[in-house]
């Protein structure tokens, strides 16, 4: 359910109706940014941002720092598992 795809806002289409152009892997579509703008974050600030698009609406801004942090954690978990395995194997052999 709730298919969402990451895309980048490339331009404002119509500021009054909170419509912007988003690009997903080179595919362009107009989306509403009504859910991600407020007084602190006007539509102009959205250009260049990565967002999660669902049924023609940008529903969330993607936090690049969090994305990097998640990928780092993923790599660490894998490395740890491999190390632990190696350690156990060494112990077993010893």
């Amino acid at each position: 359910m709730c298919l969402g795809v990451p895309g980048r806002i490339t331009a404002i289409d119509d500021a009054a109706s909170l419509s912007a152009w988003v690009e997903v892997a080179g595919i362009r579509r107009k989306v509403s940014v009504a859910c991600i703008v407020d007084a602190a974050h006007p539509i102009e600030a959205c250009v260049g941002e990565w967002v999660l698009v669902h049924v023609g609406f940008a529903m969330s801004r993607i936090d690049e720092a969090e994305a990097e942090a998640t990928l780092r954690v993923l790599a660490e978990i894998g490395e740890l598992a491999v190390e632990r395995e190696a350690m156990l194997t060494t112990e077993a052999t010893a």
């Binding site: 997903v24 993607i62 993923l74 790599a75 978990i77 894998g78 490395e79 598992a81």
Partner: peptide, 20 residues
């Protein structure tokens, strides 16, 4: 595709599956 392909990586998957 940024913010998608990174999370389909086979090598990372192997490590994580190992941990699980």
């Amino acid at each position: 595709m940024k913010h998608a392909d990174e999370y389909r990586d086979h090598d990372l998957a192997k490590g994580l599956a190992h941990a699980v």
